[in-house]
Simulated scan of single mutants.
Amino acid sequence: MAPINNMEAAISQVVETVENQLDQQIDQLRNLSVDDLETIRNQRLKLLKEKAAQQIEWKKKGHGIVVELKDEKEFFSTTKTSEKCIILVYSDDTIESKILDHHINIIAPKLLECKIAKINVKSCPFLMKRLNLTKTPVLILIQEFNIIEKIQRFDNIIDISNKSTEALLYRLHTSGIIQNEDLVAPTQKKKKVLTHRRKVIREGSSDSSDDDSD
């Protein structure tokens, strides 16, 4: 029973924390003056303008669409001009490459903060060798000039359905290349919650075992 009790305690603690935060926000709203509201309005307008300017800058760099890279020189120049990059290395003769190409074209407009591109495996032999890649397709995720992950398994991305698009977005979210929770479908969020609960149970079970050994 210890793992279940630990999980219930963890959930109760999260709920209590959220409730306290909401109470604090409500209290703050009740005490706001007209000047405070005007300040908040101006701050939000400033943030909206900054966000719009950032989106314009991203689009100037080719964000929002999938760009075909001709060679390795373009690959490296692309990773130097954009903070976040998602690059598909594909081959013409694999159905998996065609499926991923379909999905990255769908998600590109949603992920303006990322430069999304693709390059044919024939155009990047040095890159394949340097990154120790032996097969395609592969998604290379780059942030601040560093490769954070090379995705080579696409178990849940098996066709061109919306479900597979959602699975790809969730996979990218778990990698950390995108942080926007709104892009993760409810069904994928449930998986995340279940994964967290299993982790809590495992940790609770481990703690219980440690207590028993004492």
Rank of each mutant, 00 (worst) to 15 (best):
A2K: 04
A2I: 07
N6M: 04
N6W: 13
M7Q: 14
A10C: 05
I11A: 08
Q13T: 06
V15G: 02
E16D: 13
V18Q: 10
N20Q: 13
Q21L: 03
Q24P: 01
I26P: 01
D35A: 07
E38M: 08
I40Q: 14
Q43S: 12
R44K: 06
L48E: 15
E50D: 13
G62V: 05
E68S: 07
E68T: 07
L69A: 06
K73L: 02
K80H: 15
E83R: 08
I86V: 14
I87W: 00
S91L: 00
I95L: 09
E96M: 05
S97E: 11
D101W: 10
H102T: 09
I104Q: 02
I104T: 02
I106S: 09
A108C: 02
S123A: 14
R130V: 01
R130K: 15
L131C: 01
N132S: 15
L133N: 11
T134K: 11
L139T: 04
L141A: 06
F145I: 06
F145P: 00
N146S: 14
I147A: 00
Q152W: 03
Q152T: 13
R153M: 07
I157R: 03
D159Q: 09
N162R: 09
G176Q: 03
I178F: 02
I178T: 10
Q179T: 10
E181G: 01
K190V: 05
K190H: 09
T195V: 03
T195S: 13
K199M: 10
D207Y: 12
D211S: 10
S213E: 07
